[in-house]
Design a binder for these strands. Structure first.
Lengths: 215, 215
DNA sequence: TGAGTGATGTGAGAGGGTCATACATTGAAT
DNA sequence: ATTCAATGTATGACCCTCTCACATCACTCA
Protein backbone atom coordinates (compact mmCIF):
# COMPACT_ATOMS: atom_id res chain seq x y z
CA UNK A 1 0.00 0.00 0.00
CA UNK A 2 1.13 3.53 -0.72
CA UNK A 3 2.99 5.27 2.04
CA UNK A 4 0.50 8.06 1.71
CA UNK A 5 -3.13 7.04 1.84
CA UNK A 6 -4.05 10.61 1.03
CA UNK A 7 -2.44 12.58 -1.74
CA UNK A 8 0.54 13.66 0.26
CA UNK A 9 4.30 13.06 -0.09
CA UNK A 10 5.01 12.02 3.47
CA UNK A 11 2.99 10.39 6.18
CA UNK A 12 3.48 13.36 8.45
CA UNK A 13 2.32 16.61 7.05
CA UNK A 14 5.08 18.88 8.25
CA UNK A 15 3.13 21.80 9.60
CA UNK A 16 -0.47 20.77 9.73
CA UNK A 17 -1.49 23.39 12.26
CA UNK A 18 -0.43 26.29 10.06
CA UNK A 19 -1.82 24.64 6.95
CA UNK A 20 -5.17 24.18 8.65
CA UNK A 21 -5.31 27.82 9.67
CA UNK A 22 -4.56 28.88 6.12
CA UNK A 23 -7.14 26.49 4.68
CA UNK A 24 -9.67 27.66 7.22
CA UNK A 25 -9.26 31.24 6.07
CA UNK A 26 -9.75 30.15 2.47
CA UNK A 27 -12.86 28.15 3.22
CA UNK A 28 -14.36 30.99 5.19
CA UNK A 29 -13.69 33.39 2.37
CA UNK A 30 -15.67 31.08 0.11
CA UNK A 31 -18.60 29.91 2.21
CA UNK A 32 -18.51 32.00 5.37
CA UNK A 33 -18.11 30.87 8.97
CA UNK A 34 -21.43 29.14 8.94
CA UNK A 35 -20.41 26.97 6.02
CA UNK A 36 -17.07 26.07 7.50
CA UNK A 37 -16.40 22.59 8.86
CA UNK A 38 -13.21 21.11 10.20
CA UNK A 39 -13.97 18.01 8.17
CA UNK A 40 -13.77 20.10 5.02
CA UNK A 41 -10.57 21.73 6.21
CA UNK A 42 -9.07 18.30 6.80
CA UNK A 43 -10.19 17.16 3.37
CA UNK A 44 -8.59 20.11 1.63
CA UNK A 45 -5.39 19.61 3.56
CA UNK A 46 -5.38 15.96 2.48
CA UNK A 47 -5.54 14.65 5.98
CA UNK A 48 -7.93 12.40 7.87
CA UNK A 49 -10.97 13.98 9.54
CA UNK A 50 -9.56 13.35 12.98
CA UNK A 51 -6.11 14.79 12.38
CA UNK A 52 -6.99 18.45 13.09
CA UNK A 53 -7.98 17.47 16.60
CA UNK A 54 -4.34 16.69 17.38
CA UNK A 55 -3.68 20.40 17.04
CA UNK A 56 -6.92 22.10 17.99
CA UNK A 57 -9.17 21.12 20.85
CA UNK A 58 -12.33 21.69 18.83
CA UNK A 59 -13.82 23.51 15.91
CA UNK A 60 -13.90 26.80 17.77
CA UNK A 61 -10.24 26.55 18.67
CA UNK A 62 -9.34 26.26 15.01
CA UNK A 63 -11.56 29.20 14.18
CA UNK A 64 -10.00 31.22 16.96
CA UNK A 65 -6.53 30.45 15.66
CA UNK A 66 -7.59 31.62 12.23
CA UNK A 67 -9.09 34.77 13.72
CA UNK A 68 -5.83 35.45 15.51
CA UNK A 69 -4.03 35.21 12.21
CA UNK A 70 -6.42 37.75 10.72
CA UNK A 71 -5.78 40.00 13.66
CA UNK A 72 -2.05 39.79 13.00
CA UNK A 73 -2.51 40.77 9.37
CA UNK A 74 -4.72 43.70 10.30
CA UNK A 75 -2.06 44.95 12.62
CA UNK A 76 0.53 44.72 9.87
CA UNK A 77 -1.69 46.64 7.49
CA UNK A 78 -2.19 49.37 10.03
CA UNK A 79 1.51 49.71 10.75
CA UNK A 80 2.15 50.02 7.03
CA UNK A 81 -0.36 52.75 6.40
CA UNK A 82 0.09 54.73 9.60
CA UNK A 83 3.81 55.17 9.14
CA UNK A 84 3.69 58.35 7.13
CA UNK A 85 0.85 60.23 8.72
CA UNK A 86 1.99 63.20 10.67
CA UNK A 87 -1.05 64.53 12.46
CA UNK A 88 -2.43 62.50 15.35
CA UNK A 89 -5.94 63.56 14.42
CA UNK A 90 -5.55 62.28 10.91
CA UNK A 91 -3.86 59.09 12.05
CA UNK A 92 -6.82 58.31 14.28
CA UNK A 93 -9.38 59.17 11.65
CA UNK A 94 -7.54 57.10 9.11
CA UNK A 95 -7.65 53.91 11.14
CA UNK A 96 -11.35 53.66 10.52
CA UNK A 97 -10.83 53.77 6.79
CA UNK A 98 -7.99 51.29 6.98
CA UNK A 99 -10.19 48.94 8.96
CA UNK A 100 -12.88 49.12 6.34
CA UNK A 101 -10.46 48.47 3.48
CA UNK A 102 -8.94 45.56 5.34
CA UNK A 103 -12.40 44.17 5.88
CA UNK A 104 -13.01 44.03 2.16
CA UNK A 105 -9.75 42.18 1.79
CA UNK A 106 -10.37 39.61 4.46
CA UNK A 107 -14.14 39.36 4.36
CA UNK A 108 -14.97 36.25 6.26
CA UNK A 109 -11.80 36.76 8.20
CA UNK A 110 -13.36 39.66 10.03
CA UNK A 111 -16.50 37.64 10.54
CA UNK A 112 -14.54 35.23 12.72
CA UNK A 113 -12.54 37.94 14.37
CA UNK A 114 -15.80 39.53 15.48
CA UNK A 115 -17.90 36.43 15.97
CA UNK A 116 -19.63 37.04 19.30
CA UNK A 117 -19.40 33.45 20.48
CA UNK A 118 -15.73 33.13 19.76
CA UNK A 119 -14.69 36.40 21.33
CA UNK A 120 -16.58 35.54 24.47
CA UNK A 121 -14.92 32.13 24.77
CA UNK A 122 -11.41 32.92 23.60
CA UNK A 123 -9.92 35.82 25.52
CA UNK A 124 -6.81 35.84 23.33
CA UNK A 125 -8.97 37.31 20.60
CA UNK A 126 -9.97 40.22 22.77
CA UNK A 127 -6.37 40.59 23.89
CA UNK A 128 -5.18 40.83 20.34
CA UNK A 129 -7.75 43.48 19.55
CA UNK A 130 -6.72 45.34 22.63
CA UNK A 131 -3.06 45.27 21.74
CA UNK A 132 -3.99 46.62 18.37
CA UNK A 133 -5.99 49.42 19.88
CA UNK A 134 -3.15 50.20 22.24
CA UNK A 135 -0.99 51.03 19.26
CA UNK A 136 -3.20 54.05 18.91
CA UNK A 137 -3.03 55.24 22.47
CA UNK A 138 -0.20 57.71 21.91
CA UNK A 139 -2.14 59.35 19.11
CA UNK A 140 -5.23 59.50 21.29
CA UNK A 141 -3.29 61.19 24.05
CA UNK A 142 -2.10 63.85 21.67
CA UNK A 143 -5.65 64.63 20.71
CA UNK A 144 -7.45 64.94 24.00
CA UNK A 145 -7.15 67.78 26.46
CA UNK A 146 -4.13 67.39 28.76
CA UNK A 147 -6.23 67.42 31.93
CA UNK A 148 -8.13 64.16 32.03
CA UNK A 149 -6.11 62.59 29.29
CA UNK A 150 -6.01 58.94 30.30
CA UNK A 151 -9.69 58.16 30.57
CA UNK A 152 -10.84 60.36 27.75
CA UNK A 153 -8.22 59.02 25.40
CA UNK A 154 -9.28 55.47 26.04
CA UNK A 155 -12.93 56.37 25.66
CA UNK A 156 -12.15 58.01 22.36
CA UNK A 157 -10.44 54.86 21.13
CA UNK A 158 -13.36 52.72 22.22
CA UNK A 159 -15.70 54.97 20.31
CA UNK A 160 -13.52 54.83 17.22
CA UNK A 161 -13.32 51.08 17.51
CA UNK A 162 -17.08 50.84 17.79
CA UNK A 163 -17.57 53.11 14.82
CA UNK A 164 -15.15 51.21 12.61
CA UNK A 165 -16.62 47.84 13.50
CA UNK A 166 -20.07 49.10 12.81
CA UNK A 167 -19.12 50.33 9.36
CA UNK A 168 -17.37 47.07 8.62
CA UNK A 169 -20.46 45.12 9.61
CA UNK A 170 -22.67 47.26 7.40
CA UNK A 171 -20.25 46.95 4.52
CA UNK A 172 -19.92 43.18 4.73
CA UNK A 173 -23.63 42.58 4.99
CA UNK A 174 -24.11 44.47 1.77
CA UNK A 175 -26.04 47.41 3.14
CA UNK A 176 -24.42 49.73 0.64
CA UNK A 177 -24.32 47.27 -2.24
CA UNK A 178 -21.71 44.81 -3.40
CA UNK A 179 -18.83 45.21 -0.95
CA UNK A 180 -16.25 45.18 -3.72
CA UNK A 181 -17.89 48.09 -5.44
CA UNK A 182 -18.34 50.30 -2.42
CA UNK A 183 -15.35 49.62 -0.19
CA UNK A 184 -13.60 52.80 -1.09
CA UNK A 185 -16.71 54.91 -0.63
CA UNK A 186 -17.50 53.36 2.71
CA UNK A 187 -13.89 53.72 3.80
CA UNK A 188 -14.07 57.41 3.02
CA UNK A 189 -17.30 57.79 4.92
CA UNK A 190 -15.89 55.92 7.89
CA UNK A 191 -12.85 58.14 7.90
CA UNK A 192 -15.06 61.20 7.73
CA UNK A 193 -17.24 60.04 10.59
CA UNK A 194 -14.15 59.20 12.62
CA UNK A 195 -12.88 62.69 12.00
CA UNK A 196 -16.14 64.09 13.31
CA UNK A 197 -15.85 61.89 16.35
CA UNK A 198 -12.29 63.01 17.05
CA UNK A 199 -13.29 66.61 16.53
CA UNK A 200 -16.17 66.36 18.98
CA UNK A 201 -14.08 64.44 21.49
CA UNK A 202 -14.72 66.84 24.31
CA UNK A 203 -16.42 64.21 26.42
CA UNK A 204 -15.97 64.77 30.13
CA UNK A 205 -14.77 61.84 32.21
CA UNK A 206 -17.60 59.40 32.83
CA UNK A 207 -18.51 56.53 35.11
CA UNK A 208 -15.54 54.54 33.88
CA UNK A 209 -13.26 57.21 35.19
CA UNK A 210 -12.24 55.71 38.49
CA UNK A 211 -11.79 52.10 37.72
CA UNK A 212 -9.65 52.42 34.65
CA UNK A 213 -10.77 50.22 31.83
CA UNK A 214 -11.26 46.75 30.56
CA UNK A 215 -11.96 44.50 33.45
CA UNK B 1 -52.58 5.14 22.39
CA UNK B 2 -52.67 8.70 23.56
CA UNK B 3 -53.86 11.26 21.11
CA UNK B 4 -50.69 13.17 21.81
CA UNK B 5 -47.50 11.22 21.45
CA UNK B 6 -45.71 14.22 22.89
CA UNK B 7 -46.83 16.01 26.00
CA UNK B 8 -49.38 18.19 24.30
CA UNK B 9 -53.15 18.48 24.64
CA UNK B 10 -54.06 18.37 20.97
CA UNK B 11 -52.49 16.80 17.92
CA UNK B 12 -52.20 20.16 16.25
CA UNK B 13 -50.22 22.67 18.18
CA UNK B 14 -52.25 25.76 17.47
CA UNK B 15 -49.58 28.25 16.58
CA UNK B 16 -46.38 26.37 16.18
CA UNK B 17 -44.66 29.03 14.13
CA UNK B 18 -44.98 31.67 16.82
CA UNK B 19 -44.14 29.20 19.56
CA UNK B 20 -40.98 28.20 17.72
CA UNK B 21 -39.88 31.79 17.35
CA UNK B 22 -40.39 32.37 21.04
CA UNK B 23 -38.56 29.16 21.97
CA UNK B 24 -35.77 30.06 19.61
CA UNK B 25 -35.25 33.35 21.38
CA UNK B 26 -35.14 31.57 24.72
CA UNK B 27 -32.63 28.99 23.56
CA UNK B 28 -30.42 31.64 22.08
CA UNK B 29 -30.50 33.59 25.29
CA UNK B 30 -29.25 30.51 27.06
CA UNK B 31 -26.69 29.00 24.74
CA UNK B 32 -26.14 31.55 21.99
CA UNK B 33 -26.73 31.22 18.27
CA UNK B 34 -23.95 28.70 17.94
CA UNK B 35 -25.60 26.40 20.43
CA UNK B 36 -29.02 26.66 18.88
CA UNK B 37 -30.53 23.78 16.93
CA UNK B 38 -33.97 23.43 15.44
CA UNK B 39 -34.07 19.93 16.87
CA UNK B 40 -33.81 21.42 20.35
CA UNK B 41 -36.45 24.01 19.55
CA UNK B 42 -38.77 21.24 18.40
CA UNK B 43 -38.05 19.27 21.56
CA UNK B 44 -38.89 22.19 23.82
CA UNK B 45 -42.06 22.88 21.91
CA UNK B 46 -43.05 19.23 22.35
CA UNK B 47 -43.15 18.57 18.66
CA UNK B 48 -41.37 16.16 16.35
CA UNK B 49 -38.01 17.17 14.90
CA UNK B 50 -39.47 17.56 11.46
CA UNK B 51 -42.43 19.72 12.39
CA UNK B 52 -40.60 23.06 12.29
CA UNK B 53 -39.83 22.51 8.65
CA UNK B 54 -43.51 22.84 7.84
CA UNK B 55 -43.21 26.48 8.83
CA UNK B 56 -39.61 27.40 8.12
CA UNK B 57 -37.63 26.40 5.08
CA UNK B 58 -34.50 25.74 7.07
CA UNK B 59 -32.64 26.53 10.23
CA UNK B 60 -31.65 29.94 8.98
CA UNK B 61 -35.24 30.85 8.14
CA UNK B 62 -36.26 30.18 11.72
CA UNK B 63 -33.36 32.23 13.00
CA UNK B 64 -34.29 35.03 10.64
CA UNK B 65 -37.87 35.00 11.88
CA UNK B 66 -36.60 35.23 15.44
CA UNK B 67 -34.31 38.07 14.47
CA UNK B 68 -37.23 39.89 12.90
CA UNK B 69 -39.12 39.57 16.15
CA UNK B 70 -36.19 41.09 18.00
CA UNK B 71 -36.17 43.91 15.51
CA UNK B 72 -39.83 44.56 16.21
CA UNK B 73 -39.20 44.74 19.94
CA UNK B 74 -36.30 47.10 19.47
CA UNK B 75 -38.49 49.37 17.47
CA UNK B 76 -41.10 49.38 20.19
CA UNK B 77 -38.52 50.21 22.81
CA UNK B 78 -37.29 53.10 20.74
CA UNK B 79 -40.75 54.50 20.19
CA UNK B 80 -41.37 54.33 23.92
CA UNK B 81 -38.25 56.18 24.93
CA UNK B 82 -38.12 58.71 22.12
CA UNK B 83 -41.62 60.02 22.74
CA UNK B 84 -40.72 62.67 25.25
CA UNK B 85 -37.44 63.97 23.93
CA UNK B 86 -37.75 67.44 22.55
CA UNK B 87 -34.43 68.21 20.92
CA UNK B 88 -33.57 66.42 17.69
CA UNK B 89 -29.92 66.34 18.70
CA UNK B 90 -30.68 64.66 21.97
CA UNK B 91 -33.10 62.26 20.34
CA UNK B 92 -30.42 61.12 17.96
CA UNK B 93 -27.77 60.82 20.62
CA UNK B 94 -30.16 58.92 22.83
CA UNK B 95 -30.81 56.19 20.30
CA UNK B 96 -27.30 54.90 20.77
CA UNK B 97 -27.88 54.49 24.49
CA UNK B 98 -31.25 52.90 23.93
CA UNK B 99 -29.69 50.44 21.55
CA UNK B 100 -27.11 49.46 24.10
CA UNK B 101 -29.66 48.99 26.87
CA UNK B 102 -31.86 46.93 24.58
CA UNK B 103 -28.84 44.81 23.74
CA UNK B 104 -28.39 43.87 27.37
CA UNK B 105 -32.02 42.91 27.50
CA UNK B 106 -32.06 40.75 24.41
CA UNK B 107 -28.47 39.53 24.36
CA UNK B 108 -28.44 36.66 21.96
CA UNK B 109 -31.32 38.31 20.19
CA UNK B 110 -29.01 40.98 18.85
CA UNK B 111 -26.49 38.32 17.92
CA UNK B 112 -28.95 36.93 15.41
CA UNK B 113 -30.13 40.31 14.29
CA UNK B 114 -26.55 41.15 13.42
CA UNK B 115 -25.33 37.73 12.36
CA UNK B 116 -23.40 38.43 9.16
CA UNK B 117 -24.53 35.31 7.35
CA UNK B 118 -28.19 35.84 8.09
CA UNK B 119 -28.31 39.48 7.12
CA UNK B 120 -26.61 38.73 3.85
CA UNK B 121 -29.10 35.98 3.00
CA UNK B 122 -32.32 37.43 4.35
CA UNK B 123 -32.99 40.90 2.99
CA UNK B 124 -36.02 41.34 5.23
CA UNK B 125 -33.61 41.71 8.13
CA UNK B 126 -31.85 44.58 6.45
CA UNK B 127 -35.20 46.06 5.52
CA UNK B 128 -36.39 45.97 9.08
CA UNK B 129 -33.24 47.71 10.25
CA UNK B 130 -33.70 50.25 7.56
CA UNK B 131 -37.27 50.98 8.51
CA UNK B 132 -36.08 51.44 12.03
CA UNK B 133 -33.40 53.84 10.96
CA UNK B 134 -35.88 55.71 8.84
CA UNK B 135 -37.83 56.58 11.95
CA UNK B 136 -34.90 58.79 12.76
CA UNK B 137 -34.69 60.56 9.44
CA UNK B 138 -36.79 63.56 10.48
CA UNK B 139 -34.56 64.15 13.46
CA UNK B 140 -31.49 63.85 11.28
CA UNK B 141 -32.87 66.42 8.88
CA UNK B 142 -33.38 68.85 11.70
CA UNK B 143 -29.78 68.51 12.70
CA UNK B 144 -27.87 68.91 9.47
CA UNK B 145 -27.38 72.09 7.51
CA UNK B 146 -30.35 72.88 5.25
CA UNK B 147 -28.23 72.93 2.10
CA UNK B 148 -27.23 69.36 1.38
CA UNK B 149 -29.64 67.92 3.88
CA UNK B 150 -30.66 64.63 2.28
CA UNK B 151 -27.31 62.99 1.81
CA UNK B 152 -25.70 64.31 4.93
CA UNK B 153 -28.62 63.32 7.08
CA UNK B 154 -28.50 59.76 5.82
CA UNK B 155 -24.75 59.62 6.26
CA UNK B 156 -25.16 60.82 9.81
CA UNK B 157 -27.66 58.07 10.54
CA UNK B 158 -25.37 55.45 9.04
CA UNK B 159 -22.58 56.68 11.24
CA UNK B 160 -24.79 56.59 14.32
CA UNK B 161 -25.94 53.12 13.41
CA UNK B 162 -22.36 51.96 13.01
CA UNK B 163 -21.38 53.50 16.30
CA UNK B 164 -24.24 51.93 18.22
CA UNK B 165 -23.69 48.50 16.74
CA UNK B 166 -20.03 48.67 17.54
CA UNK B 167 -20.71 49.51 21.18
CA UNK B 168 -23.26 46.74 21.40
CA UNK B 169 -20.76 44.26 20.02
CA UNK B 170 -18.13 45.35 22.51
CA UNK B 171 -20.60 45.19 25.36
CA UNK B 172 -21.87 41.73 24.52
CA UNK B 173 -18.45 40.21 24.08
CA UNK B 174 -17.57 41.37 27.55
CA UNK B 175 -14.91 43.90 26.66
CA UNK B 176 -15.93 46.11 29.56
CA UNK B 177 -16.70 43.31 31.99
CA UNK B 178 -19.89 41.45 32.78
CA UNK B 179 -22.52 42.97 30.49
CA UNK B 180 -25.08 43.15 33.28
CA UNK B 181 -22.78 45.22 35.42
CA UNK B 182 -21.71 47.69 32.81
CA UNK B 183 -24.73 48.20 30.56
CA UNK B 184 -25.61 51.53 32.01
CA UNK B 185 -22.07 52.82 31.86
CA UNK B 186 -21.63 51.70 28.29
CA UNK B 187 -25.00 53.15 27.35
CA UNK B 188 -23.90 56.49 28.72
CA UNK B 189 -20.63 56.33 26.87
CA UNK B 190 -22.41 55.42 23.66
CA UNK B 191 -24.77 58.32 24.09
CA UNK B 192 -21.87 60.64 24.71
CA UNK B 193 -19.99 59.44 21.65
CA UNK B 194 -23.14 59.79 19.59
CA UNK B 195 -23.50 63.34 20.80
CA UNK B 196 -19.94 64.04 19.68
CA UNK B 197 -20.74 62.54 16.32
CA UNK B 198 -23.85 64.65 15.90
CA UNK B 199 -21.98 67.73 17.00
CA UNK B 200 -19.21 67.18 14.46
CA UNK B 201 -21.68 66.33 11.72
CA UNK B 202 -20.33 68.91 9.32
CA UNK B 203 -19.39 66.32 6.75
CA UNK B 204 -19.59 67.61 3.19
CA UNK B 205 -21.43 65.49 0.67
CA UNK B 206 -19.32 62.51 -0.36
CA UNK B 207 -19.09 59.91 -3.13
CA UNK B 208 -22.50 58.56 -2.19
CA UNK B 209 -24.03 61.87 -3.01
CA UNK B 210 -25.30 61.23 -6.49
CA UNK B 211 -26.65 57.75 -6.31
CA UNK B 212 -28.76 58.08 -3.22
CA UNK B 213 -28.30 55.33 -0.73
CA UNK B 214 -28.73 51.70 0.02
CA UNK B 215 -28.40 49.73 -3.12
C1' DT C 1 23.58 2.25 15.10
C1' DG C 2 19.48 1.06 16.59
C1' DA C 3 15.94 0.51 20.15
C1' DG C 4 12.70 3.39 22.61
C1' DT C 5 9.49 7.24 22.97
C1' DG C 6 6.53 10.99 22.07
C1' DA C 7 4.33 13.48 18.50
C1' DT C 8 1.45 13.13 14.61
C1' DG C 9 -1.78 10.88 11.39
C1' DT C 10 -5.44 6.95 10.36
C1' DG C 11 -9.82 4.46 10.62
C1' DA C 12 -13.81 3.34 12.61
C1' DG C 13 -17.63 4.76 15.09
C1' DA C 14 -20.91 6.94 18.61
C1' DG C 15 -23.95 10.67 18.91
C1' DG C 16 -26.35 14.38 17.17
C1' DG C 17 -28.02 17.70 13.72
C1' DT C 18 -30.34 19.04 9.14
C1' DC C 19 -33.54 18.09 6.02
C1' DA C 20 -36.54 15.09 2.65
C1' DT C 21 -40.14 11.84 2.15
C1' DA C 22 -44.10 9.12 3.05
C1' DC C 23 -47.75 8.69 6.19
C1' DA C 24 -51.24 10.10 10.04
C1' DT C 25 -54.41 13.36 12.00
C1' DT C 26 -57.47 17.01 12.07
C1' DG C 27 -60.44 21.26 11.20
C1' DA C 28 -63.03 23.47 7.61
C1' DA C 29 -65.48 23.78 3.42
C1' DT C 30 -68.64 21.58 0.59
C1' DA D 1 -70.78 13.06 5.82
C1' DT D 2 -66.83 13.56 2.73
C1' DT D 3 -63.00 15.58 1.04
C1' DC D 4 -59.01 18.52 1.15
C1' DA D 5 -55.35 21.27 2.70
C1' DA D 6 -52.72 22.16 6.52
C1' DT D 7 -50.15 20.44 10.12
C1' DG D 8 -47.64 17.02 12.78
C1' DT D 9 -45.07 12.16 12.94
C1' DA D 10 -41.76 8.66 11.80
C1' DT D 11 -38.01 7.28 9.47
C1' DG D 12 -33.87 7.60 7.27
C1' DA D 13 -29.92 9.45 4.37
C1' DC D 14 -26.14 12.23 4.94
C1' DC D 15 -22.87 15.15 7.13
C1' DC D 16 -20.44 16.84 11.03
C1' DT D 17 -17.97 16.80 15.58
C1' DC D 18 -15.15 14.55 18.46
C1' DT D 19 -13.12 10.07 20.65
C1' DC D 20 -10.30 6.04 20.86
C1' DA D 21 -7.26 2.42 19.67
C1' DC D 22 -3.73 1.78 16.50
C1' DA D 23 -0.07 2.96 12.81
C1' DT D 24 3.78 5.61 11.46
C1' DC D 25 7.45 8.56 11.90
C1' DA D 26 11.26 11.89 13.91
C1' DC D 27 14.47 12.11 17.44
C1' DT D 28 17.19 10.97 21.28
C1' DC D 29 20.50 8.62 23.81
C1' DA D 30 22.85 4.75 24.99
Amino acid sequence: MALTPKGRATYHHGDLAAALVQTTLEIIDEVGVRGFSVAEAARRTCVSPGAPYRHFADRDALLAAAALEVSRRLRAIYLDTAADIGSAQERLAMVAGTYVRAAARYRGGLDILFAPGLRATHPELRDSSREFVDLLLPSAFEVVAPGEAAVTAVALLDALHALARGYVAQLLEGKFGDPDDVVEDVAIRATRAARALVAGHGMPSGPFGEEGRDR
